[in-house]
Amino acid sequence: MTNLKTDAAYELFEGLIRGSRPHLSRAISYVENGAPGAAELLSHAYKARKGAMLTGVTGSPGVGKSTLVDGIVSELRKAGHTVGVIAVDPSSPFTGGAILGDRVRMRQGHSLDQGVFFRSLATRGHLGGLSRHTGDVVALLDAFGFDHIVIETVGAGQSEVDIMRYAHTVVVALAPGLGDDMQAIKAGILEIGDVFCVNKADLPGAERTRRDIEMMLAMREPGGWTPPVVSSVAVAGKGLEGLVGEVLRHQTYLVSSGLLRERNRGSSTAVLEEYLHLLTVGKVMESASRDGSLDAALDDLVEGKSGPMEMAERLLRRYRE
C-alpha cells in the first residue's frame, strides 16, 4: 500500500542522498517536527551514514563558541574536508519561540561555500544543551556525506553533558573574565573535554585561566589521552590552526586506539534511549491523557492519595492492558 505522506518523506531521503541541499534542509524539519514519514526517512538515513567525524563545541555563553566554530570550519575546509554545522540555542520556556543567533558570527564566507551546510536548532524544551533530535540531524548530515560535523551547544554551563554522548571530540571553550569558569570546571565540564581552548587570549587574565585549567588537568588520573590546552583569539582567526590540529589528532587517536567504536556505541546508546523514551514514556503519557487516567492520577498525586511510583506502575499496567 502506498502512503502519500510517507512517499513525500522518501522523496526527501532520495533527494538528500543525491546531494540536494533543499531536500536535506526540509528533511531536517520533518525530523524535528516528527512529521508523517519522518521515522521511515530516519531509518533510511541511519543506514546510509558514511561515518563523519563529530566535534562538539561547548562552554559558557559568550566565550566565543560561534566565532570559534566559524574558524574551525575555515580550517577544516582548508584541509579539504566538507563540514556540516549544527548550532543549538535555547527556546523560551514561556512562548516556545527562540532567537537563533549563532549565524551572526559566521563571517568567513562559508554561507556561499557548497562544502558547508549550517543549521540552527532550538532546544524546544529539551535539557542538557542540545535539541532532542540532535542525533537524528547528525544522521541526516552524515548520510548527505559531510566529512565533519561540528555541533555548538547551548552553553548553559553546568548541565552541558549531552554533547559528550554524541561527539567524538569535545572542545571545551573558556575565556578569561567570565568568572564562572571555575564554577564550570568544578561542575564537571572539565571531565568532558578532549581539547580545551582558552579563547579571548587577547584579554587580560587569559594566561591565568590557562594555568588554572592546566593545574586541574594535572590532577587527572594519568594514562590514555591527555587533553591539550590551546589558546586562541577567535575574532582575529588566531590559534585556530592549532585548535583544529589538536581536534584531528584526537580523532586519529580514537581510530588508532580503537576507542572510536566505543564512542560510537555511546552515541548509539544515547539515540536509542531517546527513542525508547519516546516509545514508552511518550506512549504511556499519550494514552493516559487520552482516556483521562492521567488527569485522575495527577489529582490523586496532588491530594496525596497515592505516591508517584505506585501511580507510574498503575499507568503502565493500564497501558499494557
Partner: peptide, 9 residues
C-alpha cells in the same frame, strides 16, 4: 519569538 516562532537572525 514572543509569538512562539523560531527566528534565525
Amino acid at each position: 519569538r514572543d509569538a512562539g516562532m523560531e527566528v534565525i537572525y
